[in-house]
Design a binder for these strands. Sequence first.
DNA 1: CATGAATGAGCTTTCATTCAT
DNA 2: CATGAATGAAAGCTCATTCAT
Lengths: 229, 229, 229, 229
Amino acid sequence: MPTPTNRTASAKPLRKTGVRERSAETTRDSLLRAAIKVFAKHGLDGGSIDKISRAAKSHDRMIYYYFGNKEGLFVAVLEETYRRFNDAQAALALDVNQPVASLTAVVAFILQYYRKHPEFVTLLNSENLHRGKHIAKSSKARDYSSPAIGVIDAVLRSGAACGLFRAELSARDLYMMIAALGYFYQSNRFTLSAFLGENLEAQTTFAQWEAFVTDTVLRTVLTQPGSAD
Amino acid sequence: MPTPTNRTASAKPLRKTGVRERSAETTRDSLLRAAIKVFAKHGLDGGSIDKISRAAKSHDRMIYYYFGNKEGLFVAVLEETYRRFNDAQAALALDVNQPVASLTAVVAFILQYYRKHPEFVTLLNSENLHRGKHIAKSSKARDYSSPAIGVIDAVLRSGAACGLFRAELSARDLYMMIAALGYFYQSNRFTLSAFLGENLEAQTTFAQWEAFVTDTVLRTVLTQPGSAD
Amino acid sequence: MPTPTNRTASAKPLRKTGVRERSAETTRDSLLRAAIKVFAKHGLDGGSIDKISRAAKSHDRMIYYYFGNKEGLFVAVLEETYRRFNDAQAALALDVNQPVASLTAVVAFILQYYRKHPEFVTLLNSENLHRGKHIAKSSKARDYSSPAIGVIDAVLRSGAACGLFRAELSARDLYMMIAALGYFYQSNRFTLSAFLGENLEAQTTFAQWEAFVTDTVLRTVLTQPGSAD
Amino acid sequence: MPTPTNRTASAKPLRKTGVRERSAETTRDSLLRAAIKVFAKHGLDGGSIDKISRAAKSHDRMIYYYFGNKEGLFVAVLEETYRRFNDAQAALALDVNQPVASLTAVVAFILQYYRKHPEFVTLLNSENLHRGKHIAKSSKARDYSSPAIGVIDAVLRSGAACGLFRAELSARDLYMMIAALGYFYQSNRFTLSAFLGENLEAQTTFAQWEAFVTDTVLRTVLTQPGSAD
DNA sequence: CATGAATGAGCTTTCATTCAT
DNA sequence: CATGAATGAAAGCTCATTCAT
């Protein structure tokens, strides 16, 4: 809330203004970054144009200037969020010839990405609440189909080739399984914490979950799970 | 502001002319039912008081009369939603002496419950977006700790007793695993459909997923997964 | 704010209800007492029916039952407030043959009454904001014309008879003078404190003011004020 | 909700057709002026945002644009009101070497200012009902400490120097005395009229009161009041 | 005597957005 | 590129009051 200290004779509105030496690029960027935070925290409906422009220390008007409207901004937010996720995935250096280690690494990566990027989870929830209508509008989004599936596919083939992994598995199912186990833990941690009487935000609880998920993924994949223990 | 004369196309307006026999019971209930639908569809922030009272063919004011405010209404919605889930769980008749069949039934129940009750998923997402603050306010919520965990625990013990199941598993982990695999599929079906290029709402796709989940749960649980095929 | 703890099936609204063993007289009285407090604190417009019935641990409906409407309640509040003031005045035992002492006692009484009964001041301000429309409706109010004027008149006559007081003074002017000096101090103590940089609520500050007022009243009244020091 | 098409009977609606040249200056000012009137007439609680924006022929929204919220507007109203009062005081040209005439002029000014500016009185009453919370928020308010006290102080010194006035008087007490006698008459004129059975709004009644106050102030101040008659 | 239920208008405030320069 | 001004609709909530029993 602005503190109304203006004199009578001055006709200035309350919102601070001033000379802005920022270049266009950083204005757009700071708006986008602010939007990610605000939409992540309050959802698409709860995150208002005003909250965002305020957080970016810019003005409502600039959002319309750069993104057209609120929907356009949200589309940009989704695209940026997916881009970051894919960039992080791409940075994963895996040796496909070590299938078990690679798979373990993929599991660790996904679980930890969700944990470190809670905004990814809430933004996806917002988008799904709106039945995917913004993704549908995005031209870039199509390109962002998760590279992780490709990676998992390669690992599965490699493991199957040497008889370690079951051959009939689909990479898609395995990806969804890992994603589900990581996503749900993060997305529902508040209601789960309430009902399980256990704080899922604690590091040790998360570590146990990660161990369980790794174990369960390997049991799903290995032809001889018993021998893996 | 609702002008009750042009409510909807409803032939029977509430005012005057004797339709006044609407008892408190039905007013409160219809408001609650409408709230479940509206909050499920639009989220907590997107679901307005006006939309709800309109859907219930009642008035804004009555929501405050019966639930205090929007938050109070949402708490009631959560409680009712959990209650229904638990009631459905309680209706599951399982023979603990048949651990594999029981576990399979639990998996099927949870996956299908989420699928048939998409409102459960979106309501929980809303609540988690708000960091569980409403559940925390609910006195009843504490009682609603999922009975499914107890059931799974019994099944696990029974299976372990006869050597079929691994003994070291925790019912909580297994419950979370099943829930995650069902929840994620439903919650994220729109973004997943976009990125996988496959419609997860199709019955056959869902059936395949259910089969995969059942298989994976059994592999996690069985001491001799190979022999189970 | 009511805590919304009601079960789903129960159609009870939030406001507590219960068997009330209170007699009609005390219900009316507690509503009136609550109204005095609430109107005094929040003014006529800021004091809502709901706040009052809540403060009285009764129900909105009862206010309409006993007082007709909000205006009727406010009229009753004014009447009661004046009645109390007059009762207190009537309890003043003055010896008219000691005019200086009597006048000093009247000054002390009025100043201290305003100070001890801040609700009297704010209620009168509310009534004057509304241009005296409620007093005009009151039949009792006419009877409540301040007896203090009569007392002052008697004291003035007595003082004039023995040559102590000026003969040409009107009791009305003197009453208004005393009332003004007491009322203003109490009514405007917050803005005055801010602008004078001095807390008028402090006992010592008030005592000094009382001394000043007493002195000034006597100077107004005495024929030989110099000799009174 | 203001539908600006049927604002009032105003022939020139704000929308379209070129009346858009209304500068910010006039919008803010007309809102402020309207707020003074409305708050003065109905009090802070009774004066609604809608009444004000309507009176200013503007929109609810603009109040929030220029003043943040209702409280901010009221703060601005208080500041403006004090400013006007001080400006008027500053315009008083007094010859300090004529103490009696000067003091008489100050009394006349204050009494007449309250009489001509009833909004000043009701606004202060509103502010005091709210325990001075808005003044406390105002940064400017501190500067507005009444210059009248300084003037009175100078007059008192001058009068005391030539032996006309008592030396021990405090300017603050004398200021409060004059203010009280003027304020009370104006503030409580409706209830007083009812109880005294005399219309205090009549010019002659006011003139008599002014004479009485002038006399009483001089009696308080002069060392030889008798000789002043 | 008393109460639960309901009502319509109003409240302050915030929403996303557009105008005009 | 950018901004100050303006806009209409809708948000959540409270208002005083009445109905029906």
